[in-house]
């Protein structure tokens, strides 16, 4: 699936999920750190028509670190480091003879690292507005395996600029927060730039203990990149990926600082992207 480029894109979705509460910057010296295991098993994908087609089963797994550290009251440093990424493809076995037609493969490496900053533009009463800049570094393997399609990175340099608007509120005595974001992802190597939008809603089911978060996000291609199969003979990369994603997260604080979270991300629609849901389980340290 990758699945290729699309997996890298899904990884970006996951990164987006890590940015919960990012409209509220950390205070100086405070931080949020999480180590997660992310997993996607994909046997179907959205085609360029938006329909689903089957594909050889690929799995993508990574162990990643996410950190957000308050440099000042207004500036946060953010980092996403998939320090171990693994892509596999199943053996293709004949249903007729039982013999292995194509041997499966597995590639291990580091994934693409994202580094960025988050700046609190204002924070007044229950409202918060921030801007984040994330740089996607092509540290992963953009080619691998016998056909070059085993990727742990997308091989290009992303620059995502995003505005995050958040509000905390109460509804029927229940605490909620809502977040809207809008971003522009400038991409290199002839890939089309992207617009990202998202909506997030979270609530504390148990005060300071148990969070439930739902997310809806979209990525739209601006179709301004020249990369396609015609000018990149045999290229494994897909351009103009688009999707509407729906996901959720539960976070549980075991102590005041330490907790674990479970993340689920799926797509409602898409183009040239893995169609199966991905999962992430993590342990976090919230230094409030």
């Amino acid at each position: 699936m990758t699945i290729k480029k699309s997996v890298a894109t899904l990884a970006i979705i996951i990164l987006g999920f890590q940015f919960s509460f990012s409209q509220w910057t950390k205070d100086k010296g405070k931080g949020y750190y999480k180590v997660s295991a992310w997993y996607l098993e994909s046997d179907e994908h959205y085609t360029d028509t938006g329909d689903k087609d089957p594909n050889a089963t690929r799995t993508n797994f990574n162990f990643n670190f996410y950190g957000q550290y308050g440099l000042t009251k207004k500036w946060d440093l953010i980092a996403y480091i998939p320090f171990f990424a693994r892509t596999t493809q199943n053996d293709a076995v004949s249903g007729t003879t039982g013999q292995v037609l194509t041997e499966g493969e597995a590639i291990n490496s580091i994934g693409d690292i994202d580094l960025g900053v988050n700046y609190g533009i204002f924070h007044k009463n229950s409202w918060a507005l921030s801007a984040s800049l994330k740089l996607g570094l092509p540290t992963g393997k953009s080619e691998g395996g016998s056909d070059g399609s085993f990727q742990t990175g997308d091989g290009e340099f992303n620059q995502l600029l995003q505005l995050n608007l958040g509000k905390s509120f109460k509804l029927y005595k229940q605490s909620f927060y809502g977040k809207l974001y809008f971003g522009f992802n400038n991409r290199t190597n002839d890939f089309s730039d992207q617009l990202t939008t998202g909506l997030e809603l979270g609530t504390q089911l148990i005060k300071d203990k148990f969070w439930l978060i739902g997310r809806l996000n979209t990525v739209q291609s601006l179709h301004n990149g020249s990369l396609n199969a015609q000018n990149s003979q045999g290229s494994i990369f897909a351009n103009n990926i688009e999707y509407v994603g729906l996901g959720g997260e539960v976070s549980y604080y075991l102590t005041k600082k330490l907790g674990f979270s479970f993340n689920y991300a799926s797509l409602l629609s898409g183009k040239i992207i893995a169609a199966n849901p991905s999962y992430s389980i993590g342990v976090f340290l919230d230094m409030k």
Binding site: R86, N90, G95, G104
Partner: peptide, 12 residues
């Protein structure tokens, strides 16, 4: 998650 590789059965 880093254990063995699975199998796809092909109707061939």
């Amino acid at each position: 998650f880093t254990s063995c590789i699975g199998e796809d059965i092909i109707n061939d």
